[in-house]
């Protein structure tokens, strides 16, 4: 009898070739380069002001303190009030939730209608919507302000929600239309023969099939609307200025010594929500970019 060759159970380890070492060296240095500012922010936010002044910006805090975080959250002055970022945080939550919901709903309905219910002017309508993607919104800011103030909505929560829903619509429509054109027309035709109308096919058939794109859209809209500054500043008024606007007020309106540690803590707090979403859902986010919707 001959010896049977037993296949090795494990994949052989790869050798450390110069090319591999080079690849890792490049990736590690690139990661270090992009992480450096975050590192500086983190260490600074845990230092006292004395330490910020005296030590190198790269040094770890000798006497770590959470005081700057507490100040940033609850007592930093944003203009006349000194209640910290928490007001802005809750404002942002109030703005983001309905804005994300309505912009995605509008985009999904538009995309569904354009992909399946080919009305005569569908292509024209889609073209007009797409112009919306490319027009810089700063251009139409003034007419919009006049429009909203003429209906008495300017400077309120509904105003900012309406604005975000409208500005989100073109990209959301594009995203959902592209997703729905990937679904076989025969599925829609079968549902038509089964007697489904516009809304029933949307709610019972298409929306349950849209989970992946709904996740992508949610990520894009939450990060996009959370990070928005200009629209919140203009349309939110004094009562509903989002966290980003409050952050700017904290950082830019201090008298005397600049509280770098508080500024750093406030900045990290403000970007925590999008950062968290990026970290949890990186895979989905990349898919969203790949599905043809690129947003800066």
């Amino acid at each position: 009898m001959t010896m049977a060759t037993t296949p090795s159970k494990r994949r052989p380890a790869k050798a450390w070739t110069p090319a591999r070492i080079g690849t890792y060296a490049f990736l590690l240095s690139a990661a270090a380069f992009f992480l450096m500012p975050l590192y500086v922010m983190l260490v600074t936010s845990f230092k006292t002001m004395d330490e910020v002044r005296e030590s190198s910006i790269f040094a770890l805090p000798l006497l770590p303190t959470v005081e700057p975080w507490v100040v940033a959250w609850s007592s930093a002055c944003t203009g006349l009030e000194c209640k910290g970022l928490q007001v802005g945080f809750w404002n942002s939550v109030q703005i983001v939730l309905p804005s994300v919901f309505f912009s995605i709903l509008l985009g999904a309905i538009n995309g569904y209608a354009l992909a399946f219910w080919r009305s005569r002017f569908a292509n024209l309508l889609f073209g007009v919507l797409m112009i919306g993607v490319f027009v810089p919104y700063q251009v139409i800011m003034y007419p919009l302000v006049r429009l909203l103030s003429s209906v008495g909505l300017f400077g309120s929560l509904p105003a900012i929600v309406v604005i975000h829903s409208i500005f989100g619509m073109p990209v959301m429509t594009l995203l959902f239309r592209n997703y729905y054109t990937g679904i076989p027309q025969e599925l829609f035709k079968a549902a038509r023969i089964d007697g489904g109308g516009f809304w029933r096919i949307f709610w019972e058939l298409m929306l349950p099939m849209s989970t992946p794109i709904l996740i992508v859209a949610t990520i894009m809209q939450v990060t996009g609307i959370w990070n928005d500054y200009l629209l919140g500043l203009i349309f939110g008024g004094t009562q509903f200025s989002p966290m980003t606007v409050q952050l700017n007020n904290i950082v830019n309106s201090t008298f005397g010594e600049r509280a770098y540690n508080v500024n750093m803590a406030a900045t990290i707090l403000t970007s925590a929500v999008p950062l968290f979403i990026y970290l949890v859902s990186g895979r989905w986010f990349v898919r969203g970019i790949a599905s043809g919707a690129v947003k800066g």
């Binding site: 025969e186 599925l187 035709k189 079968a190 549902a191 038509r192 023969i193 489904g196 058939l205």
Partner: peptide
């Protein structure tokens, strides 16, 4: 007439089953 009012049943090449 609307497809649903024609008294027809249809079977497609790609099956077209509702996946969810």
């Amino acid at each position: 007439a609307d497809p649903k009012d024609r008294g027809i049943g249809m079977v497609f090449q790609s099956y077209a089953l509702y996946p969810t």
